[in-house]
Design a protein around this nucleic acid. Structure first.
Lengths: 189, 189
DNA sequence: GCCGAGCTTGAACATATGTTCAAGACCTCG
DNA sequence: CGAGGTCTTGAACATATGTTCAAGCTCGGC
């Protein structure tokens, strides 16, 4: 058994969905394509996931978890650094790649089209906003919780804009200026 | 014949696609659903549009045209007002509605999944950026064309963020603050 | 009236996709 | 070894979807 490739098949199936979703959108995610991409037989997908909605739900939950890590601070660092670090991470090289952003976009589209998925998505978004507001509160303890949330809201607008605009292929310099703008909002007096 | 309802059927078919795309995404757009939504027979869709890609292309082109109207200024107004007006229009009540934004989102997702549609989308985006840079140049003639384009880039990041974040259901006040931010970028000294 | 061109219809066909299932492979424990 | 459970396979079925097409309809001009 090749340990690098032969991870457990259930996890490989989820990877395959992520890959297909990112590249071809939800209409490219069908049971046969998933099985092929994961290198397993068709029946196995339905063995682990009763039906297609269950499969998609599993993927959404997995993504929600990894999102929370974006605003989970390094406990060793200074609060200022924690916040600055988080603001830069969302425009970092792992995030600002076409596959990841494309995946995000398709997830949003999916949430827009399906009520159940919208709920999962909205929860993850709220948690992210909350995490960001907390980081701001730690870095600037003189601010009220309300003021922190307000800044988090403003920052998320610009961050979402960066993500979306990256996909549309804007100049990288505009992204750098936008990161600076988020820091400006976060640390304003 | 009821003049309000009975517009020509070819146009009704495109309307139906827009409606379905906005509500259910591309996987909700199939020939039968389009025919039903438009109130015509299945065969008529293929009569006007040879196949599904042609149908989608026609829709994309129609949307591109209406997008350009967003940055087409009222020639009577003062350049300052033209720019301010354009910046407010993109967050106006006709635009910032769920159906319209949802449509936008699905269009972006579609462009991400399909190379041909991506080209149409990128062209429309470039034209929009160009139009915005021109408005800025008219309002602030002391700026170089490069500087105008830079500001247009920055503004579009925030605008895209507003659109996306509106869909995710953020507080309206954050949107208002973001519009102010775009004006600040545009009119900065 | 009726001819012809364009418009409209829905059945029919081929293919794609979600789901089920019987059978087999594999692995663990006694 | 072998019994039993779990994992894995691909064929088979039902349904959905894109496309084709022969037939009917409508309406303006002769």
């Amino acid at each position: 058994m090749n340990p690098g490739e032969q991870v457990d098949r259930q996890s490989r199936i989820l990877d395959a969905v992520l890959e297909l979703l990112s590249r071809h959108g939800i209409s490219g995610v069908n049971m046969r394509a998933v099985a092929r991409e994961a290198g397993v037989a068709l029946g196995l997908v339905n063995y682990y996931y009763a039906d297609k909605p269950s499969l998609i739900r599993a993927v959404l939950n997995r993504i929600g978890e990894s999102d929370m890590r974006l605003v989970t601070p390094d406990p060793e660092a200074h609060p200022d650094e924690q916040l600055r670090e988080a603001l830069r991470r969302v425009a970092g090289p792992e995030i600002l790649t076409t596959p990841y952003l494309s995946l995000r976009l398709h997830l949003w589209a999916l949430a827009q089209a399906d009520e159940d998925f919208a709920v999962i998505n909205a929860e993850a978004f709220d948690q992210y906003l909350d995490g960001l507001a907390t980081l701001i509160g730690n870095a600037k303890p003189e601010l009220s919780r309300e003021a922190c949330k307000e800044r988090a809201d403003d920052i998320v607008v610009v961050q979402n804009g960066m993500w979306l605009t990256s996909l549309l292929g804007i100049d990288k310099a505009a992204i750098r200026r936008s990161i600076a703008r988020t820091e400006q909002i976060a640390f304003a007096d």
